[in-house]
Design a binder for these strands. Structure first.
Lengths: 253, 253
DNA sequence: CCCGAATACCTGTCTAGACAGGTATGGAGC
DNA sequence: GCTCCATACCTGTCTAGACAGGTATTCGGG
């Protein structure tokens, strides 16, 4: 019975993924439960008829997904699902902006002297010129979130048209190519809509809202862009999963 | 000049980590910028004097961290930092509960007939008995968040003392060993404090708050635990980084 | 009975080589 | 000038074997 699970060499699914999926299924089915020791790598090699590196790669996949943990010299063990291991991503935001039914309206785009708060964030002198861009992103005709961004004004770098449109927002969220930023820090917290924000989003002031604040730096580690997304809590949520909910689509990579 | 970066074989830092760190430093320094093609794996082998699998492992580390991306048949390219790739984790929550200066007070722990909302979440009949546990977690004497949890009451499984204390909360957030759950779904959103929540947390009703809602399932895919953390937005935030902020501590694993 | 050493087993790391399949480029043929 | 194909290069995957170092057990000596 324990020899029947050799990998299918003719399948499109590579051996390492097949082994990972098989072990995963055994965990889902309850054959291995939290705290159990998995077969050792050498045993997996025999069981599935693969080399050690292939077995290791399968285990590495499960480790990456937080399903198992390895202990040097002892073995590989099934982890219990833990809430603290959950990660939330901004995939929902990205998907929203990529969606065709989503429209972006620029409500403001000009050069202004920086306010005290903005000059503090961007580390420029008070009243230094900054570019401010404010957008309202709607889905299906209804506003979902509001985005304001302040960029350090650099006269040498002309403000290209593209910096204002949907493209710029898409680039900010998912940029496959170039960008003037080296890294960014993000901060997610809860807030309530101010009066102006509420008016833009067609809501009442004081309604709960999530805020994603972002600060991007250039290659000299100087802040160049500060901004925040603010969105209605009832329209967009962030979700995550811990443990093994279901066997996924081959566990890519 | 390009041959001077062979790995240090006597270092504690394994070769794959050294290669990854070196390439990372070149990206941080601006030698490679977003969109650039990295040296091919074969070139990295020569440059650092390692085998291909070792070079690949270094690249895999950078891919995992979102610093570079690989394209089959084309090469490895430096990624621009993208906001949509950011992930927020519950590490701050876990750290808080693990902290010695944190105290947990049980405000309620008993068996009650389930309310319509709870019976809906836990998929039990109306008025079915459920265990309700409510906790207030304080740090430095000041309440930080409030946690309420509803468990399906199972007469066969006696309610051990441990299920109420700090330990149970710690286990929920970071459990190295066993647990009765197979997986859980989490939902992070923004809210405002209700009157009772505000009174527990020593705040005003209507103040912004984040909510982490969690629903755990057993091995028969039946929900067994539903609950939510609710915390003051001014006391706990979730942060993330995109791009290469700094060269980290050897990029473990 | 206790303690230390030998031992078996486990994960971590690395190597050298091999084949597959995707991608881009340049040249031959039309 | 255009198309198609050979070619070179690249990442993806796998193998078989090797050594290092952590862990637990067992066995023997004191």
């Amino acid at each position: 019975m324990s020899k029947l699970n050799r990998v299918d060499r003719s399948s499109f699914e590579p051996p390492y993924a097949q082994v990972a999926r098989s072990v995963r299924e055994r965990i889902v089915s309850g054959e291995y439960t939290a705290g159990d020791r998995l077969p050792s790598e050498a045993e997996l090699c025999e069981l599935y008829g693969v080399s050690r590196m292939t077995a290791r790669r399968a285990v590495a996949l499960l480790v990456r997904d937080g399903v198992v943990m390895t202990e040097n010299g002892r073995g590989t063990f099934v982890k219990a699902p833990e809430l603290g291991a959950a990660t939330f991503d901004l995939g929902s935001l990205r998907r929203l902006v990529d969606d065709d039914a989503t429209s972006v309206k620029i409500s403001e785009a000009r050069i202004v002297p920086s306010s005290p708060r903005v000059s503090g964030k961007l580390a420029v002198g008070p009243d230094s010129p900054v570019v401010v861009i404010k957008r309202i992103v709607s889905s299906g005709g209804e506003p979902v979130f509001y985005h304001s961004e302040y960029l350090v004004f650099d006269p040498r770098r002309p403000l290209v048209e593209a910096e204002y449109g949907v493209t710029a927002l898409r680039d900010l969220l998912a940029n496959a190519g170039k960008s003037g930023f080296k890294y960014g820090r993000l901060d997610l917290h809860a807030s309530t809509l101010s009066e102006t924000e509420a008016s833009y989003l067609g809501e009442q002031p004081g309604v709960p809202a999530w805020v994603v604040e972002h600060l991007f730096y250039d290659f000299e580690n100087r802040p160049v862009s500060w901004g925040r997304f603010i969105g209605r809590a009832d329209r967009l949520r962030f979700s995550a999963t811990v443990g093994v909910a279901d066997v996924p689509d081959g566990a890519r990579r």
